[in-house]
Design a binder for these strands. Structure first.
Lengths: 343, 343
DNA sequence: TTGCTGAGGGAAAGCGGTGTCCGACTACGC
DNA sequence: GCGTAGTCGGACACCGCTTTCCCTCAGCAA
């Protein structure tokens, strides 16, 4: 081993010195530039960089260039099938586009989101992606929106997923259409009496899925009264609790439950089991998202597939590809054993 | 709305100018410093910062200070229960310590890991956490280790989880002990004939769990011949395939399967179902990790719980808390219905 | 030759901060 | 009343890199 025991990082100046060129030249060779550098010098620089194991200080580059390649992804909870697969999708798309992803966890707390956005502005993140469905109190959202607009004014790009009420570029899941088609499919299987397990009442996603479902039923001449909807929140525990609290009468009168996402559907299964009811023997059940873990549940859960990979790609496209038009990602119904044909 | 339509970011100099103080003073007030600033001036700075919605440029701070607060977490695949909960754990512990986390996905590819480490060196990440079990080809590991040592020499901190063969600070899961206790518990339930579904053969985790299991059996006077181990890889698909390929004779001769992690156990269940076998009626099954999605599987899967939150805390402690001594995190056996008492 | 052009190298001025150093001013002891 | 220490602002030199601008020099037309 020759030497290089210097414990402090190798800088561009070191490389330049070693190659016997100016720092400008070294920079041009190593870190991409308009200008070209003569062949022989370029070789020397490359060699020096290699020997010294040079690796550019990205923070310094960011400062000098005035821009970063960081994409910030805001999710509410990463230890969840839906968000972790969304994250994986965004990350792999971002990688292709040469963007680095940093993940921030909002815990669904608005204050935290606002604080995070402000922080990210300071970080000069190139883009902020809000991956969770939004809209709680009207007023809170305005403050968040304010902060995001400040961020955009400072040169950042905002992309929201499934949160079309905000005035930013978005990627929309076809919640409405998916739920509508699910309703139609279920009625075709013979179901007529439904009960919906809703997520947080204020969320756009909740509303869209319910309205889509309603619309689909209407198409088939059926109604979904408000009394046939129970709100809790978008979590396993939420649905578990909601099912536990449901009236016996209600339950015995419904043929199929529609949980607004799979996580809830799984919670519902557990809740039902707790009450001595089995899916689909005693009641049918459908979810939404088609999360990965469904392959572990028996009988298979009927659901609506949301192609997260496609969402990831669309998001990055919006940021890096210069695509302007917002995208709506399709959602397709997947019928499995939890909703067998009736009769 | 007063003004502030400047589309370029507010800098510290702007704030200082507005407050009528020097930049040094503004810096001292806003971004923590040894030195104090007189009450009135401090107030003015704070007010100016607030009006301008100032947010410090972290890259510039990093350059000036020569250090960052970034922790890089290397995982092989984030869309997995085990890693996503590990990630969540590290993130929440890191947050408390004022560290930012960036996640990098290795896809279990050594080349990629090496490249990532080099990259991170350039990013001046404060620490790199290798969260996946390691050790493939001896030679490859040496190159990775080399790169990591370069990173440490440059002032970074390396922490490895469950990969004690490398010469870095580590947090160790008690794979050996957990598996040993599992073996003992299962034999106490009456099981005598086992088959193990192993992960990647070269991985430390695989070896430790197998050896622990073996040790536990030995304690009870039983043996685990090599022929009772089938290697595939640490994934649902791996176990699914392995189970599918198992000899009928082998299968009918074993009372309990031990899958080296839960993901594999779930794959095994699917594989067994495919062959018309049910757990636990036809064969018992145990896993390892106690991942979150187990709450969705019926009958409940016997497993060994690894407290990821604790791992996360230990990791961050090693980085930020100045704790020196490596930690071993306990693993506790959780018996559920997939391994009922025999007879 | 002269004059011009264009390519390519280097010096130096930033980028937005931090931290050192210096100097002014107050407080205090004797 | 003077020396001295202690506070606290501000100037300014960095941090590592990019980029502008200037300069040299080769190539080439007139």
């Amino acid at each position: 081993m020759p030497a290089e025991r210097r414990s402090h990082p190798v800088t561009l100046a070191d490389v330049a010195r070693r190659a016997g060129v100016s720092q400008s030249t070294a920079s041009r060779v190593l870190n991409g530039s308009e200008r070209t550098v003569g062949g022989e010098l370029a070789q020397r620089v490359l060699a020096a960089a290699d020997e010294l194991r040079y690796s550019a200080n990205v923070q310094a580059q960011a400062v000098a260039r005035g821009t970063t390649t960081n994409l910030a992804l805001l999710v509410s909870d990463i230890a969840t099938d839906y968000f972790s697969s969304m994250t994986a999708a965004v990350m792999s798309a971002a990688e292709l586009a040469g963007l680095r992803v940093t993940i921030a966890i909002t815990e669904r707390r608005l204050e935290r989101e606002i604080e995070l956005v402000r922080d990210l502005r300071g970080q000069h993140a190139r883009a902020i992606v809000l991956a969770e469905s939004g809209t709680r109190s009207r007023e809170g959202v305005e403050r968040l929106q304010d902060e995001l607009e400040g961020y955009e004014a400072a040169g950042g790009k905002v992309v929201v997923v499934s949160r079309t009420t905000m005035p930013f570029d978005f990627v929309d899941l076809d919640n409405f259409g998916g739920a509508r088609r699910l309703a139609v499919a279920l009625t075709r299987l013979g179901y007529k009496r439904f009960h919906v397990l809703g997520g947080d009442e204020g969320l756009v996603t909740t509303r869209e899925r319910i309205e889509g479902f309603r619309d689909g039923l209407a198409e088939r001449g059926l109604e979904l009264p408000d009394s046939a909807i129970t709100f809790s929140d978008f979590s396993w525990e939420g649905a578990f609790g909601a099912v536990g609290a449901l009236d016996d009468a209600v339950l015995s009168n419904t043929q199929a439950l529609f949980a607004l996402n799979d996580e809830m559907a799984l919670g519902a299964i557990a809740g039902l089991r707790n009450r001595g009811m089995r899916v689909p023997d005693d009641i049918a059940l459908a979810g939404f998202d088609d999360i990965r873990t469904l392959r572990n549940v028996v009988p298979g859960l009927t659901t609506v597939r949301v192609p997260t990979a496609q969402v990831g790609r669309a998001v990055v496209e919006l940021i890096a590809g210069g695509a302007q038009s917002p995208t709506t990602v399709p959602a397709t119904v997947v019928i499995r054993e939890s909703t067998p044909r009736l009769n």
